[in-house]
């Protein structure tokens, strides 16, 4: 079945990250319906309650809205998605810089390394 999880971390968090990825790169477009709890559970191979919890957490953060009797939809508010993308990027880059600093690299060195790497790589998706 679908996704491979790192069983050392809560599954709902990993599922949320997976869905955020889809939303940020608009595989799931603003206003689009998310798969039903059961469908997604079967697709990724988890318990429907885990999917429910993920949807609930995402709703609490206003990334999705659930409409009674219709299902769960990606928010139509593009600024929210933009903020989400921004936040994930901030977090990840923050972590990255911290890590590079920890192995003794100065900020200019990091930037330099990044530019070199970027030049030799094409864009990737997940």
């Amino acid at each position: 079945m679908g996704l491979t999880f790192d069983n050392n971390r809560p599954i709902y968090l990993q599922l949320m990250e997976y869905l955020y990825g889809q939303i940020c790169r608009t595989d799931l477009k603003p206003g689009e319906k998310l798969p039903s709890v059961r469908e997604l559970a079967v697709k990724v191979g988890v318990n429907p309650n885990t999917v429910s919890r993920t949807y609930m957490e995402m709703e609490r953060k206003d990334i999705v809205v659930s409409k009674r009797g219709q299902g769960t939809f990606v928010t139509e508010d593009k600024t929210v998605i933009q903020e989400l993308r921004q936040k994930i990027a901030d977090d990840k880059i923050g972590d990255f810089i911290l890590m590079m600093n920890q192995i003794g690299l100065k900020n200019e060195e990091i930037l330099q390394l990044m530019e070199q790497k970027m030049a030799s790589r094409k864009e990737e998706k997940e």
Partner: peptide, 14 residues
């Protein structure tokens, strides 16, 4: 199960 994973930082198998 999720609390266990969070607390112990390991899978149920472990």
């Amino acid at each position: 199960a999720e609390v266990l994973r969070e607390q112990k930082g390991q899978s149920l198998v472990a």
